[in-house]
C-alpha cells in the first residue's frame, strides 16, 4: 500500500480572496509546515475564518494558489475543520461521531468502539444518546471537535474552538489540542485569547483587514512584535 501523499507544507502563494467588491484576504504569502500549533490572530473581521476555509479547500482563492504538499487538487481526506459555529446533524451525539467516522473510511466494525473512545476523549460519554442539537453550545463545540478528530487528520483547522467554553472546559480542550499536536497532527487555529495563544502557539500568523502583518515564532511575536499593529493588538488596544 502506498502511503497517502502528505498535505504539508501548506503554502499560500500570493493568495487573494474577494467577494464582489470586498477584498477579504489581500495577497497572502504563507508557508505552514509540520510543528507546534500555528495560531491565527487578528481583530474581528480580519479574515481568520476565511483563511481557515482556504486551508481546508472549502473556498478557492480569487487569485494566487493554495497548495498542500505541492498539490493543488488535494481533496479534504486528510484535513478536518472545526467551524466557529459547528453544525450538528439531526442525530444523536454518538451518531454524529459515527457519521464522521464512516465518511473518513473507518471500517464499520470499528466504529462503535472508536465512537466511544472519541466521546470519552472530549468528556461526552454520558450524553452519547442525546440528540446532538440539544447539547449546550460548549458541548456542541466539544462534539464537533471529536467529530473532526474522527477523521484522524494530518491538518486540523480549529476556528476559535474554545470561544464558548468555560475555563475548565477550555483547559480540557487545550490539553486535547496539545496531545493531538504531539501525536503529529498539524494544528492551525484561530483564537482571540492571548493567554491561550501563549500557551499553545509555536508560531503566530497575524492578520488585520485581510492583510498578513506578521508570521513569526510565538516568542518573537510577543516579545518583539515587528509592526505597530501587532504591538497594539498585544497591548489590547484597538488596531487601526
Amino acid at each position: 500500500m502506498r502511503a497517502p501523499a502528505s498535505n504539508l507544507p501548506l503554502v499560500f502563494d500570493d493568495v487573494s480572496l474577494s467577494a464582489g467588491a470586498t477584498t477579504i484576504l489581500d495577497r497572502i504569502c504563507l508557508t505552514i509546515g509540520l510543528g507546534a500549533p500555528t495560531l491565527v490572530l487578528g481583530p474581528n473581521g480580519a479574515g481568520k475564518t476565511s483563511l481557515l476555509r482556504l486551508c481546508m479547500g472549502l473556498l478557492s482563492p480569487t487569485r494566487g494558489v493554495v497548495s498542500w504538499g505541492g498539490r493543488i487538487d488535494g481533496g479534504p481526506e486528510r484535513r478536518a475543520i472545526l467551524f466557529q459555529k459547528p453544525v450538528m446533524l439531526r442525530r444523536s451525539v454518538a451518531a454524529n461521531i459515527a457519521y464522521g467516522l464512516a465518511h473518513a473510511g473507518c471500517p464499520r466494525g470499528l466504529r462503535a468502539q472508536r465512537t466511544e473512545e472519541l466521546l470519552d476523549s472530549v468528556g461526552l460519554s454520558a450524553l452519547a444518546s442525546r440528540p446532538a442539537r440539544r447539547l449546550s453550545g460548549g458541548e456542541q463545540q466539544r462534539l464537533a471537535l471529536a467529530r473532526a478528530l474522527a477523521r484522524q487528520p494530518e491538518i486540523l483547522l480549529l476556528d476559535e474552538p474554545t470561544a464558548s467554553l468555560d475555563p475548565a472546559a477550555t483547559r480540557f480542550v487545550e490539553e486535547i489540542i496539545l496531545a493531538t499536536a504531539h501525536s503529529g497532527t498539524k494544528i492551525i487555529m484561530a483564537s482571540h485569547d492571548l493567554g491561550q495563544v501563549r500557551r499553545l502557539a509555536g508560531d503566530v500568523v497575524f492578520l488585520v483587514h485581510g492583510r498578513l502583518f506578521e508570521h513569526a515564532d510565538a516568542s518573537d511575536f510577543f516579545d518583539r512584535p515587528a509592526t505597530p499593529q501587532a504591538a497594539a493588538f498585544i497591548r489590547g488596544d484597538l488596531v487601526l
Partner: peptide, 25 residues
C-alpha cells in the same frame, strides 16, 4: 444550506449527501 460546509468538509459524496439530507429531514 445548514449542512453544506460541514458535509463538504467531511468529504461526503454526492449520493450520500442526498441520502443524509432525506434521512435527517
Amino acid at each position: 444550506l445548514e449542512y453544506r460546509e460541514e458535509l463538504s468538509a467531511m468529504g461526503v459524496g454526492w449520493a450520500s449527501r442526498v441520502a443524509t439530507l432525506l434521512w435527517d429531514s
